[in-house]
Design a protein around this nucleic acid. Structure first.
Lengths: 371, 371
DNA sequence: TTGAAAGCGCTAACAA
DNA sequence: TTGTTAGCGCTTTCAA
């Protein structure tokens, strides 16, 4: 039999209202009273009933997180960041995953968040217009990570600048036959990440005076297998690329797999640069563009909490975190041609510091300060 | 202004009690009435308040999942399985992560689950005695995945048999200098997985008449870096092993990294077998022991729901799922010695079918049927 | 700063 | 099968 607020009130010699105030740390309670209440609560091993509290207050102190997958590295990292921040603030975290069309349709039609949470964080989920509408009709503050949504708080990276940085790294090594893997299927979804990264890729080529070749832009779905298949088709071209910018480390890993199967070597035959600084990038010695993933989750959570606790106004609608070039063993100058230099240059503006070294003898990194 | 149950009742021309019954699909409602209620609810865009429902019914229709990390592959996979199962049953999933001593102490002392959930699933979290006690005092049904807890439902694999299978694979290739990576620090925690896997490792050696060497049992913490460090120390022995059984794919990946750095080749210089069939195993062409991870989450959730919905009794207290040897390119006979055969044999009992081929030309696999 | 009392929106007995 | 009604355990006015 759990203790009730009335039991605590009785033991502390105050009213239930005072217990409620004291337990929630409201300001209008004497220190002495608060202490007595806390002691009584401890003695009775009291903890309030969230349902009763929620019903009475109309606030849930819960946040929903909606993600397409839970089992992928990126989402796990973001979740970790969100969880840490929410727990610290005493909020509950409800998890919803919408991996396929079915669960997704179900989710958006039934909107199981309805009177359940105070806010929502959406992770890299390209929403249809009507889905967005459904979400917005909840009337809750919404945060997004990785893929922006008009009108919602957003934290992410500058995908275009990061892609330029990756591509420029390859250009600076002397490559000119550079392909990218990850281009979205035309009009397939509203997943904007590949659009932006492809744009950055093209811009870097243009800036370097390298002609864009459509056959060097391979569609893939950000999975290992997708990267594998894309690499196979790239290497089957009459003139295969000497360097590849994979728009995710998972696709890069697939590309490496494909090369191995074809008896080709990276970086001797083809240089590959990935994106994310996934754990497999470290393991496979993959040059990549690092982004602070769980940090983005933490920021998104913090922003949402801030919106809830009053300060809707002084909220940055968009927060952009830095990316960073991490050079490992998967990129090097092409075997034959004109090698210029091994330094990347892909910052958003020309004031970006160059040649920063990371502490502790880890790979050379260059920051891309934006936001 | 959201509609209330009274509004629906009015519109449907019934009482609130009937609305409640109809909406929850209770049996004692006429089809006609139910339809009218549902129409009214749809018309008013009504959805019940979970807090009110919980307060009145005393049941939360929520499950807590407690995990040490959210960002690691294994946990993400399990979560995915749990989430799918819970959502289907209309349960909410609350996530708690306890990555460090601080958050862990906080969690177990404040027990934020108290009146919040109907059941708990604990993922591979080796609990201290008092923590276990705290959990049990909640009086809720508890399920565990990966690391058992006395008195709680459990789903997992037969770690000993699986480790025997892995080790026997190396033995059958002709190796005799076989090390393992992942042995727990003596008495460090109650994390039983490495204990069991090490036991299986030793048993396989003994069964093959190979003498056990203490220096071939390297302590590591199931991370990439831990595997790396362990591999370095193994290869620095006067007589380094020719084959290594890493007790997780992440440690195996670390071992591969270490080898690469030392200028050694896998499998030419050292064979490595991992454990889990993590995505990196596929990527790095690693022979490993596969286990159905998200499936274990799904099963754990299903069991817990079953316990909640009445059938505490006819519940298997322990469910063991099969593991499977997945042979890839990281294991081969040692360069010099006596090669016997390339077939593994590590089943729990002698009736285990042998030499099963997986459909579709994937790597040879052998099932380890237990449970 | 504290207390009294009226809800918050539903569910579960019980009665019909 | 349906309705009536008394809670579920808090929070929040409002008054003191």
């Amino acid at each position: 039999v759990p203790a009730h607020i009335a039991d605590v009130a009785r033991l502390a010699g105050v009213s239930t209202a005072t217990v409620s105030r004291a337990m929630r740390g409201l300001p209008n309670v004497t220190e002495a009273t608060r202490r007595r209440v806390e002691q009584a609560a401890a003695e009775l091993d009291y903890s309030m009933s969230p349902s009763a509290s929620r019903l009475a207050s109309g606030t849930t102190r819960s946040i929903a997180v909606v993600a397409p997958f839970l089992g992928r590295w990126f989402f796990g990292q973001v979740l970790d960041g969100i969880e840490a921040e929410l727990r610290q603030a005493g909020y509950d975290m409800l998890l919803f995953s919408v991996p396929d069309e079915h669960s997704r349709g179900d989710f958006f039609s039934r909107m199981p968040l309805k009177r359940r949470v105070d806010g929502v964080i959406v992770l890299t989920l390209p929403l249809q217009e009507d889905e967005e509408l459904q979400l917005r009709r909840l009337g809750l503050p919404i945060g997004t990570v990785g893929d922006a949504m008009p009108g919602a708080q957003h934290v992410g990276i500058d995908d275009e600048a990061a892609a330029r940085m990756a591509t420029t790294h390859l250009l600076n090594l002397g490559h000119t036959r550079i392909a990218t893997i990850g281009v979205g299927e035309p009009g397939a979804s509203r997943f904007t990440v590949p659009l932006k990264r492809t744009q950055g890729f093209r811009d870097a080529l243009t800036a370097a005076g390298v002609k864009r070749r459509p056959e060097y832009e391979a569609v893939a779905d950000f999975t290992v297998d997708g990267g594998d298949a894309a690499m196979v088709s790239l290497m089957s071209l009459p003139q295969p690329p000497t360097a590849v910018f994979a728009q995710s480390d998972e696709m890069a890993a697939g590309a490496l797999k494909a090369l191995r199967r074809m008896g080709l070597n990276c970086p001797d035959d083809v240089s590959i640069i990935g994106f994310d600084n996934h754990e497999i990038a470290d393991i496979t010695d993959l040059t990549t563009v690092g982004q602070p993933v769980s940090e983005q989750g933490r920021i998104a959570a913090r922003q949402l909490l801030q919106a809830l606790e009053g300060g809707y106004d002084d909220l940055d609608p968009v927060i952009t975190v830095d990316t960073q070039l991490i050079v490992r063993g998967s990129t090097k100058p092409p075997t034959t041609p004109h090698h210029t230099d091994a330094t990347a240059s892909a910052s958003t503006d020309s004031r970006t510091p160059r040649g920063k070294r990371r502490r502790g003898g880890r790979p050379t990194g260059e920051s891309n300060e934006n936001g």
